[in-house]
Design a protein around this nucleic acid. Structure first.
Lengths: 246, 246
DNA sequence: TCAAAAGTGTTAGTATTACACCCATGC
DNA sequence: GCATGGGTGTAATACTAACACTTTTGA
């Protein structure tokens, strides 16, 4: 059994073999940008927040970084994202999707290719992480200087989030099972950074057939608001052929 | 060779076993799905085609696979995609973008994480590859069984292409510098797989401010058609913050 | 009763679609 | 001339945005 070629074509095998001296190996890391929403006391609208981990060793010791870890040779990329996420933050997000592979030569002192995922957390899923050591939540629009190229990565993840909220149903990943239309609208407003007309938003949401009204209401300070839940038939279906792989 | 998984211990020879610690390292490959359009003789509309490379050794010897190669430790992912593409096919596409990272454990006999790119070729860029050995062009809708998980990868790339053509200007990457509106429309029709109204398409294209009319015409069998070219100011700007990195 | 959020109605503007029609050229 | 694709006009429809208005609750 020849152990040389496997990835793609083999016309470059000899060159690759010559290069693959032990410490020349490029390692593969997996990290995740986790988004959630937090509403500050008596605030106009919630803001996008994400958890970061303080580095305890070089390089970038003391700096904040995305949660992650090394890819284990016996697990898939998706599994590595879930595992490293749980290990570093204790979180198990409801929504997890690959974002991009970053592999510039100088993005780390040693050669590291990082497969980045992004995740969404419902408000009830957030509790786990607040107790963890070395984990802290930051406002996405007000980040410190992060380790490696992680500032750039978060910017890209935010761009994807804002884009995807326009044509997909990912707001689901940031809401509890039951929610009012105002809750849903606030998710969109927080991500898009602008107010939306309640009347028009209601019509769009109801017309999309992505949500179904329940017969329950949330009572509160004013007129009770009807609670809705997502149609599970409609969710996803915007990630293409890849979702069928699991 | 029909060896499937790497787990059958009794069939592994001693040399391979001796290397098995080194093989615990996951290697990184880079491959590319290259799309172009080909119009068959007297045909209704062009079809999407892509070049594949025949494997000359195990695993999947004799099968067709995506062009690619190993990531060199001294080059970025983008550079590796360009380099391996040129080495295996002689092509230098005008459009090249990362697609997805595939890393399931059993996608190859040895552990390989493949960073997949996708590319678009203008008709004038195609010539280089037809002369290469072991390279052949296939209709995207009629592929043979490919090596590894490359069938799945091509499906995903096609999905991305069809999606992106809806909100982006990537048709640019499949056309020569100057083109008629019928040329442009045919690109969309080939990718989307349906006919478009010429009148409405014209208005949309002209109203998008992505193209500018020249004062030249293409003369042919009927009334001459005005030639257009793309506004270079407008192109791209749909890949988010990542494009600024080069 | 009043403030405020829930929810409904209406209208203007804009984009999409379908299709009728004229124009210019090669044969 | 006439067939064919290039190019223009137009009406119907659907979607979007703006905003006036009614309803229902807690205080």
């Amino acid at each position: 059994m020849t152990r040389t070629a496997s990835g793609t074509v083999d016309t470059v095998d000899s060159a690759a073999a010559a290069r693959s001296t032990a410490d020349d190996v490029t390692r593969v890391a997996v990290s995740t940008v986790i988004f959630s929403l937090r509403r500050d006391e008596g605030d106009t609208c919630p803001s996008v927040v994400l958890p970061l981990v303080r580095r305890t060793r070089d390089p970038f010791e003391g700096d904040w970084a995305l949660p992650g870890g090394w890819l284990d040779s016996s697990e898939s990329l998706d599994a590595a994202a879930s595992r490293t996420l749980a290990e570093t933050t204790g979180l198990t997000p409801s929504y997890l999707e690959q974002l991009y592979a970053f592999g510039d030569v100088d993005r780390s002192p040693t050669r590291v290719v990082s497969i980045i995922y992004w995740a969404l957390l419902r408000p009830d899923e957030v509790t786990a992480a607040v107790a963890e050591e070395n984990v802290s939540w930051f406002d996405a629009s007000d980040l410190p200087r992060l380790a490696f190229d992680h500032n750039e990565i978060v910017e890209y993840a935010l761009w994807r989030l804002r884009n995807k909220v326009g044509y997909s149903r990912i707001a689901h990943g940031l809401l509890a099972d039951e929610f009012t239309l105002a809750d849903l609208r606030e998710v969109y407003e927080a991500i898009l950074g602008r107010r939306l007309d309640p009347a028009n938003f209601r019509r769009q949401a109801e017309g999309s057939h992505a949500i179904t009204p329940t017969d329950r209401f949330r009572t509160g300070s004013h007129r009770p608001a009807r609670l809705y839940r997502y149609d599970h038939d409609v969710e996803l279906a915007d990630r293409g052929p890849l979702v069928a792989r699991h």
